[in-house]
């Protein structure tokens, strides 16, 4: 039962990571791509870690450290990238505007 639940979380994590990758392809500009990447990757990875934790209960302290690390560093990295792009003068894509 626990094993099944763990597999479900692993599958869910994989699904979100896939959606994140799909978002990278479909979004029109760098800012929207960062958004798709950041969000899907965060929950996807957390779901994966949860699944692994259910399979291997003795690993949970390390998985917790990993989860916190991801939650703290992922948004910082995304914001920093976005700021760098804005400062180097890349205009955000606008609906109905020119193709970016």
């Amino acid at each position: 039962m626990i094993g099944l639940l763990a597999d479900l979380f692993l599958l869910l994590g994989g699904l979100f990571l896939f959606l994140g990758a799909l978002g990278l392809i479909r979004m029109p500009d760098v800012y929207n791509r960062i958004q798709a990447g950041t969000k899907a990757v965060t929950l996807g990875t957390l779901a994966l870690l949860l699944g692994v934790g259910l399979h291997q209960p003795t690993w949970w302290p390390k998985l917790l450290v990993l989860a916190i690390l991801i939650l703290v560093t992922n948004p910082v990295g995304s914001s920093t990238l976005a700021r760098a792009f804005l400062r180097s003068g890349i205009e955000p894509w606008k609906k109905g505007g020119q193709d970016g």
Partner: peptide, 13 residues
């Protein structure tokens, strides 16, 4: 700023 980045449709620049 981090909370905003991780929530629906917003990214702190």
């Amino acid at each position: 700023a981090n909370s905003i980045t991780l929530t629906p449709g917003t990214l702190t620049v």
